[in-house]
Structure formats: C-alpha cells, structure tokens
C-alpha cells in the first residue's frame, strides 16, 4: 500500500488547523510539505524534481546563470523575482512550473513508503507559490493520480522498475518525451531517476514509462547487471595511507629549568612576583 493512507490524515489535519510551518514526512522518498495558514505553498521531496531542477535540466537556465540569480537574490533558495526580471520565465509561467512541481512532489511522497509525519514550525515557511494549494485539492489530485497509475495495464512504481529500450525498428511517430526516455533508460534508472535526468515531472514520466512498457517500447531489465569487483593486482595489498611527513621540530632553544627554591612553589603557582 502506498504512503497515502498515512500521509492524507496528517496533511488534512494541518489544513483544518490552518497550520503554518513544515510537515516533515519520514519514509522513502519522504519529503517536506511547507504550509502557510493551512495552504500548501511548497513541497520538497527527493522523489520528484523541484522547480529549480526542472528549469536547469530543461536548459531554460544554465548552471552559471542560476548561480548569478542566487547571488543577486542575496543567497535566496528560490530567486523568483530575479528569474522574472532577467526574462528566464514569465511570472504566470513560473507559477505553473511551481504548482506542477508541488503536485508532483506530493504524488512522489504519497506513492512511496511513509513511516510517519511530524510538524515543525519555523519562523517563516519556505514558499514557492504565493497563495498556495488547498490541502483538500492537493490530496484529491494525488489520490486521482495514484488511482490512474494503478489502472494502467502495466502499472509502474516511480522507484521500482528500471527499464531498457526494446531493440526493434520503430516508426517515426514517437513523441519528444518517448525519444528522451528511450535515450536515457539504461536498466539502472527508475522512472524517478529518468524524471530528474530529463527534467520532467515524475508522474508524467511514470505514466509514460508504464505506457511504453505496454506498447513494447521498453522492457524491465531483470535482474540488474552484476557489479564487477576486481581482484587487486598481484603484489598490491590494501595499505594504510602514507601519513604526511612529520612537522619539522622547532629549533631547540636553551631554557634553563626553573630551580626549586624553598618557598618558591607558591610563587610559581600563583604568579606572585618575587
């Protein structure tokens, strides 16, 4: 069973309480829901690419440009104003990207394993969308996505299958997404890994992988290729690291050891001048 059953009541309660802060979800992939007055304003998860990864992987913004935007925004985690000011994205476009990433991360958390949820209230919640999504709508959309995925003829879990392309002649009617998935599916990457690699939503990629498995374009590579382990060459033994050369000793200076005199111990300990 997916983590939705544990996540949904905890998140719904945050909405009812008009909670502001973080709902930290332990599990795999787990993640953090950021809420303001009971509305979800950002969701972060290792299971789904955030807006930054989507913008960078799609090539809309380069790594150097992003670093400059962050510097310009005083080290902000999400330099939205600078992105718009430099024309990398329109404000409406950015809002759409953020909202898509928010729903996608909620799906990734709910589709995975949830061990527990914990509320934390920081001074100011991290927000990627100004108004935010209601908890009810977010949960409804997540449940719809989970159900839609389960109904596919070849249901795929974002973190489970590691497909490879089927080596057959294909007609030219493949979509851009299908081309990208065929190029990067190497038997090591899950749908989640592929989503990060090509900068697309994990739900979109998971559904497409499921369809391509059904259409015979992809096949699950089982079992994974063995990891080659090499025997060390003859005569080579694992040796301790060579310690760095010792620091040269300071030049010796002639210092006369203090002589004990009757009654001098008190002066030595307490520093009272003679």
């Amino acid at each position: 069973m997916s983590g939705y059953a544990i996540l949904a009541p905890a998140l719904a309660e945050c909405g009812r309480d008009e909670f502001s802060g973080e709902l930290r979800v332990a599990g795999t992939p787990g993640g953090i829901f950021h809420l303001r007055d009971g509305r979800v304003v950002a969701v972060e998860s290792p299971g789904a690419p955030g807006p930054e990864a989507l913008l960078l992987r799609s090539g809309r913004v380069s790594g150097e440009q992003w670093a400059e935007l962050v510097r310009e925004s005083g080290g902000s985690r999400w330099p939205a104003t600078a992105l718009i000011a430099h024309g990398y994205a329109g404000s409406a476009q950015l809002r759409v990207v953020c909202m898509m990433a928010l729903h996608d991360a909620a799906f990734a958390i709910a589709a995975g394993r949830v061990d527990g949820c914990e509320r934390v209230a920081p001074a100011e919640p991290f927000a990627q969308v100004a108004l935010g999504e209601t908890v009810a709508r977010l949960l409804q959309d997540t449940a719809r996505r989970l159900a839609a995925l389960a109904l596919l003829p070849h249901p795929v879990h974002p973190d489970r299958e590691r497909p490879v392309p089927v080596p057959v002649a294909r007609d030219g009617r493949l979509t851009v997404l299908q081309h990208e998935l065929l190029a990067h599916a190497d038997g090591r990457r899950t749908a989640r890994d592929l989503a990060f690699r090509i900068g697309r939503g994990v739900y979109t990629v998971t559904v497409e992988v499921a369809r391509m498995l059904g259409d015979g374009l992809l096949v699950c590579a089982e079992p994974p290729a063995p990891i080659p382990v090499r025997a060390l060459p003859e005569g080579h033994r694992l040796q301790q690291r060579t310690p760095p050369p010792p620091e040269p000793a300071p030049p010796p200076t002639r210092t006369a050891l203090p002589r004990r005199k009757p009654g001098s111990f008190f002066r030595l300990r307490n520093g009272i001048p003679k």
């Binding site: 992939p29 890994d193 990060f196 090499r230 060390l232 694992l238």
Partner: peptide
C-alpha cells in the same frame, strides 16, 4: 537512498576495486 546514481570503491591510492556506475 533515493537519488544515488552511481557508486565506486577504490584503494586509498586510487586503484579501482568495484564500480556500480553508468556507461
């Protein structure tokens, strides 16, 4: 750990022992 793409183990002097890496 979600997000690990590749791992490798080597001797301290850099001689490769095992690699679970993409092509």
């Amino acid at each position: 750990v979600t997000g690990i793409t590749d791992t490798a183990v080597a001797a301290a002097d850099g001689l490769l022992i095992a690699a679970d890496t993409a092509d």
